[in-house]
């Protein structure tokens, strides 16, 4: 990300303060909205964030610089997954990722465009936000737990669990994640 100096830096700081969004968040949001052209981005910012034309023009320029500057950072990818109405799902993601990362120093967290993968020798957990209502956990489990929340599935993961509230990330969910972690040992 190119650093700004002088007048433009002050202008950006003011935009960030009044809109409540950082430059990285704007970039993540624009990327998630699939906008690429300067004019489209300017109109989007004016319509959705009430930016003046001059401010929208600056942000559009910076966003396009950032998007052209190679792959997005982990933070930007994660923000894009939980932007807009999906921001309400962040507490669920926080609970689940803390549990997965707490299982051992050998857990790798790989943030992708459409989900976050937690891996040991192989993937044991995939966390996605398919709608604004739920976070979906894909687990690789050797056995099906006796709980109606766990659905058998096929493909990358053996089981699927939908979580709609952070309170639902309880002992059972933690024990399924731990069981998937143990099974992913080579």
């Amino acid at each position: 990300m190119t650093e700004l100096t002088g007048q433009a830096a002050t202008q950006l700081a003011n935009i960030e303060a009044s809109s409540g969004r950082t430059r990285a968040e704007f970039t993540a949001e624009i990327a998630a909205a699939g906008l690429e052209k300067h004019g489209e981005i300017v109109s989007y910012l004016k319509q959705n964030h009430g930016l003046t034309h001059g401010n929208a023009n600056l942000v559009a320029k910076l966003v396009r610089d950032d998007m052209a500057g190679g792959p997005a950072s982990d933070e930007e990818l994660l923000q894009a997954q939980y932007s807009g109405p999906k921001a309400a799902l962040v507490p669920i993601y926080d609970e689940v990722s803390a549990i997965a990362l707490g299982l051992g120093d050998d857990v790798d967290q790989v943030i992708q465009k459409t989900g976050v993968s937690f891996r040991r020798a192989k993937q044991f957990l995939l966390v996605q936000a398919p709608s604004a209502k739920r976070v979906q956990l894909g687990l690789n489990l050797p056995h099906t737990p006796k709980d109606e929340r766990v659905k058998e599935t096929s493909g990358m993961c053996s089981h699927r669990v939908d979580i709609t509230s952070p309170e639902d990330v309880d002992d059972s969910v933690a024990s399924w994640i731990a069981a998937a972690y143990e099974a992913a040992d080579g």
């Binding site: 507490p91 926080d94 609970e95 990722s97 803390a98 549990i99 990362l101 707490g102 990330v169 933690a174």
Partner: peptide
């Protein structure tokens, strides 16, 4: 940061700060 606390807390305690508070 919020996410640092959640991770470090879970590392030492085994349950998340939110579950503990509840």
């Amino acid at each position: 940061s919020h996410s640092h606390l959640v991770r470090e807390f879970t590392y030492f305690v085994g349950i998340t700060p939110r579950a503990m508070a509840r």
